[in-house]
Amino acid sequence: MEHRTSVDMDRRTYVKVVGASSVAGLTGTAGCVGSISGSGDESTTTEKGGKLTAGTAPGFPPFEMKKGGELVGFDIDLLEAVVSESEYTLSGWEEFEFKGLMPALASEKIDVIAGAMTINDERDKKIDFSNPYYSADQSILVRKGGDFSPSKLGDFSGHPVGAQKGTTGEGIIKDELISKGKLKESNYNSYGSYVLAVEDLVNGNIDAIVIDKPVAKTFQSERDVSIAFTYETGEQYGFGVRQGDSEVQKALNSGLKAVRDSGKYAEIRNKWFSDS
């Protein structure tokens, strides 16, 4: 599932070259930042070789979750491995709801987002991204053995559905269903965490969830839910950094390449994804 890329390739050029259908591929303190000019706006950059604070949003297994009170997951292991290959050090992790990650980055509470965040044009206007490190589509989760068995998005009409706030799943529901009159807005339920959404699904409060495929597969293996179908999006995840923080961006790209070349990426991937 790996896709190798040159660390020197510009991130936007990389996305153009790889295209939407590529397969899964590819933190600082307030005292360590200074003001720079980036894209015409005032931005901040982390001191080269300094400490980085990472931010994530638990409740998105196997990428980030809490087990026994400990923060674990693919993104956690991968970012720690990537930073260890750079001149930066990781000072720790901060936890937020997914929708709070970009504001936390902008306000310098964190320096890197590692939260299975899809690279898209809307986010790219507000933050910068590393090269992609994983690709995924969206899956539709339903209750195992339930009466609702959709095979396409159009089948959602009249059914209560859910997604996590600020995610691609929510965007699909709003853009492809609600805005096109295929689903009433009152039938959409948004959640701070997919764990809560799955609870509502199992308890019969909603009939379906739109969620990233690898996360859907994890919930399917652990709860009484099943994947009805997959909606192809070709989305790719990247680590988020503040606009203009090019030194951190370059360090993450260099670290990603080193982790891939050493085989560590495959080791981490195989630890968290049983079908890899």
Rank of each mutant, 00 (worst) to 15 (best):
V18H: 14
V82R: 10
A20Q: 12
T167C: 04
E176V: 14
H159A: 10
L183T: 15
A258W: 07
I113R: 03
N253A: 03
V198N: 02
S130F: 12
D121S: 14
A251T: 04
E222C: 02
R12D: 13
E108D: 15
A24T: 05
Y134E: 01
R123S: 01
A266W: 00
K213C: 09
V15H: 08
E85H: 07
D200H: 14
D75Q: 08
V72M: 05
P150V: 08
S149W: 00
E95F: 00
K125E: 14
E267P: 00
I36G: 10
A251E: 07
L256H: 04
D128V: 04
S262N: 02
A57M: 00
S91H: 10
D10Q: 13
V215H: 00
T46G: 10
V18N: 11
A136H: 12
D8R: 00
K180W: 07
K48C: 05
G50S: 14
G69D: 00
I172W: 05
K184R: 15
G263A: 07
Y188N: 12
G181H: 07
K152Q: 13
Q138A: 10
W272H: 07
E235T: 06
E94D: 06
D137W: 05
A54W: 00
T233R: 13
F98K: 03
A104I: 12
G28Q: 12
G166S: 05
I110A: 09
